[in-house]
Design a protein around this nucleic acid. Sequence first.
DNA 1: GTAGGGTTAG
Length: 587
Amino acid sequence: MAIIIQPLLQKCTTLSHIQQLQAHLITTGIFHFHPLHRSKFIDFCTTISLPYATQIFLTISSPVTNDWNAIIRGNAQSLQPAKALSVYRQGLRKLACKPDALTCSFTLKACSRALACNEAVQIHSHVVKYGFVADVLLQTTLLDVYAKSGCLDSACKVFDEMSVRDVTCWNAIIIGLAHGNRPDEALELFKRMTGDGQGEGVGVGFKPNEITVVGALSACAQLGMVQEGEKVYEYVRREKLDVNEQVCNVVIDMFGKCGHVAKAYQVFNDMRCRKSLVSFNTMIMCLGINGEGSEAIRLFNEMSKEGFRPDNVSYLSALCACNHSGMVDEGVKLFEAMTKDGLVAPNIKHYGTMVDLLGRSGRLNEAYNIINSIPVTITPDVVLWQTLLGACKTYGNIELAEKASRKLVEMGSNSDGEFVLLSNIYAAQRRWKDVGEVRKNMKYKQVKKVPGFSYIDVKGAIHKFVNGDRWHTHMEEIYNKVEEIMCRIMEHGYVPETDYVLHDIGVEEKENALSYHSEKLAVAFGLMNEEEDISSPIRVNKNLRICGDCHEVMKLVSKAYEREIIVRDRTRFHRFKNGLCSCKDFW
DNA sequence: GTAGGGTTAG
């Protein structure tokens, strides 16, 4: 008997359709005697109603592996992916389910959605135990799951141990690294994959597809490596991968994050494929971080005319644009419109941007009120209070700073930045006793330090500097150069903020002293190495926000050495030229 | 026959 179930399934759109089909399958005996069709049915059923599919599953007296797979997959894709794991365990416990490669694959997917790395390790051991370890598809899933649940080292290990590799697993590891904050390694692997790398694995020679270039471009964007990005973009055009919208969006993002707004805009305007909401959002954000606030707002208004309804990311991008351009009233208006219309509910990031926007312009009480206006459904996070604290430092508001600081302590936050800020605020008012208290507290609590680092691209090689770095091969020269820079800019009126900030903070902290902030080391290295070509700017990328002292130093260096310096910090660009910064000191 | 990889966000 030929049973054609697929076309029937495709016509099912409601629970009642499902029930009719179920009745049909039962009366014809298919449900009991053709388990493959039954599993297919259950699998489909989970997409209409998972509870109902589960109910059906429970009526089966001895479910086959495929039935288990269907129900595990359904749960893995649901809002509670962890349930898939318990179903899987039930199946194993009663020896009711003999897992196959698919069972492992779906359960692994559940681990990745539940960010359950330890559970992934468990399933990994099952993969070995049941003999599926040589399955390339399963290995790729494994690799991807490790990467997505934050165990990047395990992901790399799986990748390294694969005996057969194809484009998909290369893509998985490249994207995993790019998303996991290891863009330098992602780019290195991309080069190795295409046979463009150095050393081990040269000549692998896989042909990147649209997914590969998305990963590579995202890595370039994070590293701010526009030369590499350009190369990938040339490849994209040559291979006509730019018919793909997602590829175009990442190209725009890459140019934007590398400070090439005009190029980003050109790609945006020339897109051969349909633009999406994401394309607009990306472009608006790109204009914002490059300080082109009014153009960003113009585009924001234009997108509605083109039939796109702004979503929360659109609003966030527009608010950021206002923030980076000091367009305070415009931002406030936008935020009010957003909350009034009720079409887009503000989230923690919108509130965060507003606190930053108001705080930076000195409207501290309004910033504080924004935090207090946050509905109970949203839990304020540390970033919010850190932002307020930062503004308090700028405007010397001790009272509010103490409030913010107390909040941060309550929230169990323990990062060095806050302590330093509070100490700075006291120090600026010469309240040395309070400064001492903060420091004592800092030591007592063994404050975690978020390491600041900077990248600089010199002659095509990426050099990474960590605060207080002493590992670079040219360290001695670099430190000497920093000394030289400091002396030279003092002639231009530089007064280090260090004087009243971190003095006497202890030997260990000396490494963290302002003069050895990673961006200063990077710029020193840049000045050492590129003295012959003074027409090209020195580009530095930093993982954290640039500090006030470094900002001042960069301005003076750009003047003293007649050299343009572009620093991309965590949130935006600063172009230092002839003693001034493009952010007009608003940041 | 059923499985693996992708874009924007303080």
